[in-house]
């Protein structure tokens, strides 16, 4: 939902980042306002996942230039846990399995961390169980998964549902969903997409990283961006994704060649 006077939630300016000695992001510019859904597309290795990890504060990536302001605050100076507590959420492409850590306990601790930051009361075990039961419905997740270790032995689809369940519990202002559609069957894709749509509102924003139109058929983006060689090379509305689906990325290669960048 585009609203011209909505507040800016995140503003990325000329962002450069590297992992080890390898530059990955080469000047990303992107502004996301409340209520908006942005889709970020591009070839493998174009820097989409790196951007998501840099925004979440992954320690393997170092920012060498540029800025990211989140609700007016310098996001890059904050630790990953601080970023999460103030409302930045990364839905992982490959959610991590953590044997021995109870999923329910993990969800409760993380939810309470966010609630405390928002000035809300922590939920005790019983109150949290009620809360999580209610949110489970959003992703039609079997409550038995709460009693297991975090993501351990979950199928690809179950892991992604667990990610969206976390999004539902943490109620972030900016959710970056990295290839949430990968590993999902058709039914699971519908369920997860419906969950995301229900969580989307005028106060928050979503950045969807995806390769496929099928996700954008279910979650309608307001903007579509194409990333290549570590920067956004083209932005448009949802028709851009349809164009990509038809024509692929060859035009991107030609454009980069013309600029002398590969």
């Amino acid at each position: 939902m585009i609203c011209s006077d909505a507040p800016v939630l995140i503003e990325i300016c000329d962002l450069h980042a590297r992992v080890d000695d390898q530059p990955i992001l080469n000047g990303v510019n992107l502004t996301i306002k409340a209520g908006e859904i942005h889709a970020l597309m591009g070839r493998n290795g174009s820097g989409k996942s790196t951007l998501s990890k840099v925004l979440a504060g992954h320690p393997a990536y170092s920012v060498t230039q540029g800025s990211v302001r989140y609700c007016g605050q310098d996001l890059l100076t904050l630790q990953p846990d601080q970023r999460s507590r103030i409302g930045v959420f990364l839905g992982f492409q490959y959610p991590v399995e953590i044997p021995g850590v109870s999923n329910l306990e993990f969800l409760r601790v993380s939810t309470n961390a966010r609630r405390l930051e928002k000035g809300q009361e922590e939920l005790d075990t019983f109150a949290f169980e009620d809360f999580v039961q209610e949110r489970l419905g959003l992703v039609q997740m079997d409550p038995a998964f709460l009693d297991r270790s975090v993501n351990e032995g979950f199928s690809g689809g179950e892991k992604k549902r667990n990610e969206i369940l976390q999004m539902a519990l943490l109620e972030p202002l900016v959710a970056i969903l990295d290839e949430t559609d990968s590993g999902l069957d058709i039914d699971a894709l519908r369920i997860v997409s419906a969950g995301v749509n229900q969580l989307s509102n005028a106060e928050n924003a979503i950045l969807l990283i995806t390769h496929y139109q099928r996700l954008l058929d279910l979650i309608k983006p307001d903007y579509v961006h194409v990333m290549a060689a570590g920067r956004i090379v083209r932005s448009g509305d949802k028709t851009l994704a349809l164009e990509l689906e038809r024509n692929g990325y060859e035009w991107v290669d030609q454009g980069l060649k013309a600029l002398g960048t590969t």
């Binding site: 979440a56 504060g57 992954h58 320690p59 630790q79 990953p80 846990d81 970023r83 999460s84 507590r85 990364l90 992982f92 959610p95 991590v96 953590i98 044997p99 021995g100 850590v101 306990e105 993990f106 601790v109 993380s110 961390a113 966010r114 930051e117 270790s149 975090v150 976390q166 943490l170």
Partner: peptide
């Protein structure tokens, strides 16, 4: 595990608490 620590941190859990969760599981 650094991946597990980051995952927990990315959910708002401070590093000492994240480390303790992993240690408890171990």
């Amino acid at each position: 595990q650094q991946d597990a620590l980051f995952y927990l941190q990315s959910r708002g859990i401070a590093p000492p608490q994240a480390a303790q969760l992993l240690l408890r599981a171990f």
